[in-house]
Amino acid sequence: MNGKTILTVIFGAIGLVILLWLGFWQVSRLAWKNASLAEIELRIQAEPVALPDQLDPERDRYLPVAVTGIASPGVQVFATAKAQGAGFRMLSVFEVKGRRILLDRGYRKQTTPDDLLSEVELSITGNLLWPQEVDGFTPEPEGTTWYARDIPAIAMSLNTEPILIVARSVTPNTFKARPMPVSTEGIPNDHLGYAITWFSLAFIWLVMTAAVVWRIRQQTPKLQ
């Protein structure tokens, strides 16, 4: 084995080890993410409690609550739903025991008239959520139409606390907006795809290294 072949084998081995390490790292990340999603799902489905006086966005994210209050008109947030297309999440002002918070009452299609235009007493079971939907490409709101659930900004515009309950069930459920509950479905979990990509690249790298070594060995007699 000449020096050129040895260097190729060493270079190929280093690249193969790196690609395999990245693949196995993504496998470990997949296990971690699945465990995290399972924990979140347990928190979402836990027994509902009354709305706490003091809330922490990290500690109380996904906390199930059961409350009764007065819902009044708020804003609509552009959204899409599977098999439904474009529409809006309907966010109402929700007065609960003297507190004004926000209530995500659910989804309605763009073509469906808005019937959440008056005050009504509602009993809600849902989950607390502080969505992180705003980025540098989010358009500015147009009147009562927003393009992301920017809770601090919406709360300021409606004079409420920056607290959002996403409804799981609404009583009475006589409105066109239907609950769009919190779930783990929208939380990205791409680690399996990344792992497959790295392992595929490792296989390709191995084949290419073997091909280069074979070609060098084939050419070696001609170079002597």
Rank of each mutant, 00 (worst) to 15 (best):
T5Y: 00
T5I: 13
F11V: 11
G12A: 00
G12L: 01
A13H: 01
G15D: 01
G15A: 11
L16E: 07
L16G: 02
V17K: 00
V17W: 04
I18S: 03
L19I: 00
L19Q: 02
L19H: 01
W21V: 04
G23N: 05
G23C: 05
W25G: 09
W25Q: 04
W25D: 13
Q26D: 09
Q26A: 03
V27G: 02
A31C: 04
A31G: 12
W32V: 15
W32I: 15
S36A: 15
E39L: 11
I40T: 11
E41Y: 06
A46F: 10
A46M: 02
A46I: 08
P48C: 02
V49Q: 15
V49T: 15
A50N: 15
D53T: 15
Q54E: 15
Q54R: 14
E58M: 11
R59Y: 08
L63Q: 10
A66D: 11
A66R: 14
A66E: 13
G69V: 00
A71Y: 02
A71W: 01
A71C: 04
G74F: 04
V77C: 07
F78Q: 13
T80V: 15
A81G: 12
K82S: 15
A83G: 14
G85S: 09
A86Q: 14
F88G: 05
F88A: 06
F88S: 07
F88N: 08
M90K: 08
S92A: 09
F94T: 01
V96K: 00
R100I: 04
R100E: 07
I101L: 06
R105Y: 03
R105Q: 10
Y107N: 09
R108I: 14
R108M: 14
D115I: 12
L117D: 12
L117V: 11
V120C: 09
L122I: 11
T125F: 03
T125A: 08
G126C: 04
L129I: 12
E133I: 03
T138L: 06
P139C: 11
P139K: 08
P139A: 09
E142S: 13
E142G: 04
G143E: 02
T144C: 01
W146N: 00
W146S: 03
Y147R: 08
R149C: 06
R149M: 12
D150T: 10
A153F: 02
I154C: 03
A155H: 05
A155P: 02
S157W: 01
N159R: 12
N159I: 07
N159C: 07
E161P: 03
I163Y: 01
I163K: 08
L164A: 00
I165H: 05
V166L: 00
R168M: 07
T171V: 12
N173L: 10
N173K: 10
P179G: 03
P179I: 01
P179C: 05
M180F: 13
V182Q: 09
T184G: 14
D190W: 11
L192F: 14
Y194A: 07
Y194W: 09
F199C: 06
F199E: 06
L201G: 08
F203V: 12
I204K: 07
W205K: 04
V207F: 12
T209Y: 08
A210T: 12
A211N: 11
V212N: 07
V213E: 03
P221Y: 04
Q224W: 10
Q224Y: 11
